[in-house]
Computed example of a mutant assay.
Amino acid sequence: MHIVGHGFLARSLEPIAAAHPDTVVLAAGVSWASGTSDTDFARERALVDATARQCAADGRRLLFFSTASTGMYGNARGPGREDEPAEPCTPYGRHKLALEQRVTASGAGHLILRLGHLVGPGQPAHQLLPALLDQVRSGTVRVHRGAARDLIGVADVITVIDRLLAQRLDGEVVNVASGVAVPVERIVDHLERRLGVRTEREYLDSGAQHAISIDKLRRLVPEVADLGFGPDYYRPVLDAFTDAALAGSAPTG
């Protein structure tokens, strides 16, 4: 596996790289769902196009990471599914869907994964969990009223990716998430209990929530039944992240 990128997800993929030598993984680009920089978007488009052209030329498979966030599925009626037309509702979601379409049209063998909110040691400070943990530590948390997010441990994501790549899939789009949207207030509650603190909450009336369908993932990777996905899955995921942060191995902002 040739990994393009050096960040959180790229580092997490290194243990399975040797098992998939004919795959090029794009683990670089815009990773901030609230980011709307035209310059950053253009830079990622150029990277996707160049990498896809190279994969088409030398017969390697391209693994592209898209998003299953609110930006992609926020307008979905019911759980967001890969086999239904997506209606992105943010610039980030529209950008990622357009990149999916460019990958599909490139002629390269490819697999597109729409990821939920990854959680694990060493995440960038701007991502959801490090940002929330920093706010809890500071004593004040901004909560978007009604917001909910699908959290999935990065170790489980790598397990799923390994199984999907082993199947030699081509031209597929797959949601990789836990299938459960956790209210952000409940996430904050859990972080407070874990740290033994109480915070002041500032509520904003701009929250959004959506559900992500993982029916296709369950069909393709039956082993996800052993990963513990369900209403309480997020608790041990948060515990592991918080423990690592407190031990100093998951620096936050």
Rank of each mutant, 00 (worst) to 15 (best):
R61D: 02
A42V: 04
V48D: 05
D38P: 15
L217R: 00
L118W: 00
I214L: 02
D232N: 14
A86Y: 05
T36Q: 15
S213Y: 04
S206G: 14
G71A: 00
Q127P: 12
D150Q: 01
V197K: 04
V237A: 07
D156Y: 01
E202T: 13
S34K: 09
H6I: 14
P121S: 07
G228S: 14
D226V: 02
F65W: 07
D170N: 15
S213C: 09
A181M: 05
G207D: 07
A166H: 08
L47M: 14
E185I: 08
V4F: 11
E100L: 08
P231T: 08
T23S: 02
V188W: 01
A42P: 03
R45A: 10
D150F: 02
N175A: 01
G196K: 03
P251V: 11
R219V: 13
E223P: 13
T199K: 07
Y233A: 03
D134L: 13
V180Y: 01
S206P: 06
P236V: 15
L63E: 02
F229C: 11
R43C: 04
V160Q: 00
V182R: 04
R81H: 08
A181V: 05
T140E: 13
W32Y: 12
R94W: 12
N175T: 07
R142C: 10
L246N: 10
A247S: 15
S249G: 05
E14W: 00
L133R: 04
D49P: 10
D243F: 08
G253F: 06
I152P: 04
V141R: 03
S66I: 07
L238K: 00
I187Q: 01
G253K: 08
L129K: 06
D205T: 13
P91R: 14
E200R: 15
I212G: 06
A166K: 09
P121A: 15
A46T: 15
T70N: 10
G7Y: 02
V4K: 10
V24I: 13
H95M: 13
H6K: 15
N75W: 08
G153W: 05
A125W: 14
L246R: 15
L195W: 02
K216L: 06
L63W: 03
I3N: 13
A155Y: 04
G228M: 06
F64W: 11
